[in-house]
């Protein structure tokens, strides 16, 4: 029983990692129709930025080209009693950069040009695979090649109530992830701005007629996605370290969680993420550690075949 609780709790924590990674992916798909195969890299890049801006690690400084321009170390870490202030400052500095690079520039340069209303998604799929390759290899070549430790905002504390070990990071990430996704769900469903956004996503023509600034709403979606991936980078990296190739696995798990949960529902990503994390851990503990990744993948294939809108998604008519 203790082992079951132990495995389930840490499965939920891992699941929260997948959920927070998946939510941006689902959001873009749901509201902008953009399938982003570079999503894993979108999480990796802010994580690296946070580390570069927020700490004075000599190994993760700045990419190669910046020394040509100026300062050798732009880290602004404030050493403080146990609290990761540097990390939070790095986080705050990263958000505007992410909104510009991963939100605005991504939308303007790729999505707007490749995704036409009623058109095919394949060109954008191809281009984002290229984008993922570009970001990954760029960080690898210009920045650093070995995994770097990434401190947790929640510290390294842990408790062992009744023989079950729970770390502060686990609890922190589960709570933070639930709050973030809950807030996003509330924003989309309950606020005026959010409903405008959803309306623009569901039928751009009608929304335009109704006076909703469609283009601005879509841009808002991309900005929100950029903030989400930055939060994900902050929360996920303590578990997987800051590394250039983190995006591959993260991206795969994000797709899996988003599709299983239902990509047209933001909260689908939350349920999907938790489900994937728990299934992985259960199959690792009780079936075979060799095939702990196989459970979610089989579930993914099954969901696509039987219920493409996802376990928690709502069915929708797909226009041809």
């Amino acid at each position: 029983m203790e082992q079951f609780l132990q495995v389930t709790i840490s499965g939920l924590a891992t699941g929260a990692i997948f959920a927070i990674s998946a939510v941006g992916f689902a959001l873009l798909w749901q509201t902008a129709g953009a399938v982003n195969f570079a999503h894993g890299e979108f999480i990796m890049v802010p994580a690296v930025l946070i580390l570069a801006l927020g700490t004075q690690e000599p190994t993760v400084g700045i990419p190669d080209f910046i020394p040509l321009i100026g300062g050798a170390n732009i880290g602004v870490a404030l050493p403080s009693a146990g609290l990761p202030w540097g990390l939070l400052i790095g986080f705050a500095l990263t958000i505007p950069i992410a909104i510009f690079l991963l939100g605005y520039l991504f939308k303007v340069s790729l999505v707007d040009r490749l995704l036409q209303p009623g058109g095919d998604d394949i060109p954008l799929v191809i281009a984002t695979i290229g984008l993922g390759l570009f970001l990954r290899e760029y960080v690898h070549e210009a920045w650093f090649a070995t995994p770097q430790p990434f401190p947790s905002v929640f510290g390294n504390g842990f408790w062992r109530p009744g023989g079950v070990a729970i770390s502060a990071d686990d609890i922190g990430i589960i709570v933070a992830c639930t709050i973030v996704i809950g807030a996003l769900q509330f924003f989309i469903k309950r606020t005026y701005l959010g409903r405008q956004m959803e309306a623009a996503a569901q039928n751009a023509e009608t929304a335009r007629v109704l006076g909703i600034p469609v283009n601005r709403m879509v841009l808002l979606t991309f900005a929100i996605n950029a903030v989400l991936v930055t939060i994900a980078g902050l929360l996920v990296s303590p578990a997987i370290n800051a590394r250039w190739d983190a995006g591959i696995n993260l991206g795969l798990l994000a797709f899996t969680a988003a599709i299983i949960g239902g990509f047209n529902q933001v909260r689908g990503a939350l349920y999907g993420g938790f489900l994937v994390g728990v299934i992985q851990n259960w199959s690792g503990a009780y079936l075979s550690t060799l095939y702990r990744d196989a459970g979610p993948l089989l579930l993914l294939i099954l969901v696509i075949l039987v219920r493409p809108q996802g376990l928690f998604g709502r069915a929708e008519e797909r226009r041809i």
């Binding site: 191809i126 290229g130 993922g132 390759l133 760029y138 070549e141």
Partner: peptide, 8 residues
């Protein structure tokens, strides 16, 4: 890196 950029 160039290949990725090239595809985009």
């Amino acid at each position: 890196v160039w290949f990725g950029l090239f595809v985009m």
